[in-house]
Design a protein around this nucleic acid. Structure first.
Lengths: 216, 216
DNA sequence: TCATCGCAGTTAGAGGCTCTAACTACAGCT
DNA sequence: AGCTGTAGTTAGAGCCTCTAACTGCGATGA
């Protein structure tokens, strides 16, 4: 499991210890989240589990929100690493979708922490949005076709006029379109599957996902 | 706004009053949810806003969870009514997608209460899953083609072998497949858009959604 | 080597929450 | 007109987050 802090790289023992404790706090936090959701996450409970008394944890995290932000960062990092590894191993869109699905299924609440219900006011810090961009960049590469591909649909044309994000990246409009379709179709299947809305329908969501991303 | 209880139908004044208060509680609850998310929903705060003291609300809702369940029910009911109305007015899949998107955008947290992060243990009561089925049934009708349509893809075949849900409904495998694709693509665009993950990309999600559901 | 200083961890406590228990007082029914 | 059930009250237990003030250990510099 990738963690934000390169734990054992702290020079002085103080920093090493701090990083260790932070990691242990996060481990307990993930456990709580996996079993009862993020709303049940309690600094107090974590402190007790670690054999300390309540406010001690505030030495390590400014508050509940900062802990959650750290968890979100780790989740993004883990997903980005997974996606990048798959890409570097040379993957198809279908295989990539399957890899991401497995990543999500291995810890649904971790996926939902990123792509589930956001708190209305919340705005992620820049270093986190950077990781998100990193993921999208890989998507563009995986969905890339011939560089001089012409627009094929009205939406392609719109994407061509206003390249918004990905302005710098060398991707044709259809490539951007494919990446967007890939991403939204993937999220569609996953968010419904993880929320349990597909279970009663009695089919394998993996099959649906494979076909959804096969014809972009 | 459709509410579960047909407020003014209570026969004796006691029941009428109860229904009125329940509705007022729910109105305040929706306000809180819209501004700060469901995790910030507080019975205590609602009671104060209504000029009563804390525990009074427990006469009307057995607890926080029951209130939330009632809100979920109302949200499903509202969506089902919206979908049904569009269908009865004769709608295309593209138009239906736009209608549902508008419904979601008009109150993002209401959409997210249904399709956002679920609490791990939560299981919706039967009357709520019935509303969900109602929505899916309309989807099948909107996506229906000729009744003797033949399977076109491996997933169609799988759907044909194991009709799971919709066993009773007269829908061909490709119809079921189209409904499923429609539903997952819609959820994909909406969940990303409402969580704010599409905003930085700088394009109109409505356009993407229209093309996504245009070619099923 | 020893004094110092900073940081980990403590308890106390304010203020919020959910929810239960026991009580009061009023409104509707017979 | 009296009875009864129910809406509302306060008190309080037990959670939570987070602040403040204090203690005591361990790393670091003279």
């Amino acid at each position: 499991m990738a963690t934000e802090s390169v734990t054992d790289a702290g020079r002085n023992p103080r920093e090493r210890y701090r990083a260790q404790v932070r990691d242990e706090v996060k481990r307990h936090a993930w456990e709580q989240i996996a079993t009862a959701g993020v709303s049940a996450l309690s600094l107090n409970a974590i402190a007790k589990e670690m054999g300390m008394s309540g406010p001690a944890l505030y030495r390590y995290f400014a508050g509940r929100d900062e802990l959650i932000t750290a968890l979100i960062r780790d989740a993004y990092r883990s997903l980005a690493d997974t996606v990048r590894a798959a890409h570097e191993a040379g993957t198809t869109v279908v295989a990539l979708a399957a890899v991401i699905r497995e990543w999500a299924l291995s810890d649904p609440q971790r996926y939902l922490l990123i792509y589930g219900t956001p708190v209305p006011g919340y705005h992620a810090p820049d270093d986190i949005t950077a990781i998100s961009d990193e993921i999208l960049a890989v998507l563009l590469e995986v969905c890339g076709g011939s560089p001089d591909e012409q627009p094929r649909s009205p939406f392609d044309v719109v994407l061509g006029l206003n390249r918004g994000w990905a302005g710098a990246l060398p991707a044709s409009s259809p490539t951007v379109h494919r990446a967007l379709s890939f991403w939204t179709r993937l999220q569609g299947v996953l968010s419904l599957e993880l929320a349990g809305h597909l279970t009663p329908l009695g089919f394998d969501p993996g099959l649906l996902l494979a076909e959804e991303v096969a014809d972009l």
